[in-house]
Nucleic acid binder design. Structure first.
Length: 274
DNA sequence: ATGACGTCCTGCCTGC
DNA sequence: TGCAGGCAGGACGTCA
């Protein structure tokens, strides 16, 4: 599923492929994918605009348009963005197609949970609540030991659940949370307020490392995620716990366990993580 | 404010 | 082979 490294990969590829192009056409295959404004108003509002730049904030992909408009994509669980030649036919599960000067974008979303928003100037989009209250990304300078400690102390929720909280670790998702906890040697069900300074320090570092490694490897292709040319990322080859339940731990040989924490499938090594 | 849990959505996998 | 049912899970709403 697209987490920070996957969205960063898409951002970098789009920046290279579509910056400076103009939107010449738009078609919506599924209306409820357009969260704001109405589906009827959407295409007319973006057609004719120039693509100034492509950015990312946590898991949100932001396409800066001319006239101070921003196109915001949230890929949720299964969203992908494909860059195709202009004459190519719509790919399966395409929910939105945007034609540019010399290529087109397909927003594909098999599970139809992803959303697209158009923000006009400084307008506040009510359905984009999470976007306005994101915490620090693990790879940002602000993601220090002190920051993480302040966010975790007095919280008695399980650490795994708090890593998924976008107000604490912006851009984190299920895969990288499990991997960071494995690298830090911390059990996902541990209560945040019971963690030592040493453990928080370690976790702060492994969160940074795992996200950086994910980006270096162009993301994790385990289900739907693909790069904008349809190719796979490669971080799935380096996973220690995610998707490896029942298989031997690469460090100690114990069977990787799978438990539900906060209704999320959570993988960990019962021996390496304490 | 916090934490637990239900809901959305639909392709895919499992089991009968 | 075919079908029903369960599962996956990010964000958000609801409830205690």
């Amino acid at each position: 599923m697209p987490e920070l490294p996957e969205v960063e990969t898409i951002k970098r590829e789009l920046r290279r492929k579509i910056r400076g192009q103009r939107i010449v056409g738009c078609s919506i295959q599924r209306k409820d994918i357009i969260a704001h404004p109405s589906a009827a108003a959407f295409c007319p509002s973006i057609t004719g605009e120039l693509i100034i730049d492509v950015e990312r904030n946590a898991k949100y992909l932001i396409v800066q348009l001319s006239n101070n408009k921003r196109l915001v994509f949230h890929l949720r669980l299964s969203g992908t963005i494909v860059v195709s030649p202009l004459n190519s036919t719509l790919e399966r599960f395409t929910r939105l197609a945007i034609q540019l000067n010399d290529c087109q974008l397909f927003f594909k979303e098999p599970r139809a949970l992803g959303r697209v928003y158009l923000i006009d100037g400084n307008e506040l989009v009510p359905t984009l609540k999470g976007f306005y209250r994101l915490g620090c990304e693990p790879i940002s300078d602000g993601f220090t030991f002190d920051y993480l400690k302040a966010k975790l102390k007095r919280r008695k929720a399980r650490i795994k659940s708090l890593l998924l909280d976008q107000n604490i670790c912006a851009g984190m998702g299920n895969i990288y949370s499990d991997e960071a906890l494995f690298r830090a040697g911390i059990r996902p069900m541990r209560r945040a307020n019971r963690m030592t300074d040493k453990e928080i320090k370690k976790l702060q570092q492994t969160l940074k490392d795992v996200i950086r490694d994910g980006i270096t490897n162009f993301g994790t292709s385990v289900s739907d995620y693909k790069r904008t040319d349809g190719k796979e990322g490669s971080f799935q080859k380096m996973l220690h716990v995610y998707g490896r339940e029942g298989e031997p731990c690469r460090k100690c040989g114990s069977k990787i366990a799978l438990k539900k924490i906060g209704n999320r499938g959570t993988r960990y090594c019962p021996k390496c993580q304490t």
